[in-house]
Design a protein around this nucleic acid. Structure first.
Lengths: 112, 112
DNA sequence: AGATTAATTAGTAAATTAGTTAATGAGTCG
DNA sequence: CGACTCATTAACTAATTTACTAATTAATCT
């Protein structure tokens, strides 16, 4: 079997999915409501198959789920998957919001 | 609203930097203390110039800052930049932690 | 049935990325 | 000064990503 971009197993994790600005815009679009592939694509300049591909990538890594109704496919966000990203940045939170963040930064820097 | 290359952020941004697992590991390493390039590289199998490149990318997008001391370069995290990621995730938070997340999801889905 | 619509899959080209080894720059120390 | 060390830059390759047009699948409408 010939392997191509569609059949090959590629690296697909949440962070890689978020790396593309179009995909982030899709997620923000869907934050308020679910939409069909066509309605989503209407918000972008890219060709429809391009948006379709982005939707597939987001779905593969579980950031989106789909539900077919007739010939339309509705896409909606899987909030739980976003949690993975939130958990990654959690250890850094104190670095931008704590009162003592500057002091802490210095202490870390000089390994006190 | 039409989203295009003007309204979207271009490459080499925080999200693109986080897409690589080695770079995420570097950030986690530095979460507890600053380290020299050599000490960081010692934690990975990649060749040193490879790690150096990752450090450069992380520095370019301000996730890391560097400070030279003699011939060593100390790298440390710029927590504020992480905030950008946190802010992107924020609108989705209710989707994984709210009591009513399932109900909300349904309401959004059917645009009630 | 035939035409239309919604969306994906296929195939291909261009750009970007991550990795390598070799070479270079710049402190440190005998 | 010359050898050694820390780290980056240069040059190159292989793999991956993103994009497009054309073709296909499947549901709906007249």
């Amino acid at each position: 079997m010939q392997l191509n971009a569609y059949t090959m197993k590629l690296r697909r994790d949440v962070f890689q999915a978020l790396a593309d600005p179009t995909r982030r815009a899709i997620l923000l679009l869907l934050a308020s409501q679910s939409m069909t592939a066509g309605a989503i694509a209407a918000n972008f300049d890219s060709a429809r198959p391009t948006v379709s591909k982005h939707l597939q990538i987001l779905t593969e890594c579980d950031l989106l789920a789909q539900e077919q109704s007739g010939r339309e496919i509705h896409y909606f966000i899987n909030g739980k998957k976003m949690k993975e990203v939130a958990e990654f940045i959690e250890p850094f939170r104190s670095m931008w919001e704590g009162r003592f963040s500057k002091l802490e930064a210095l202490m870390k820097k000089y390994k006190i």
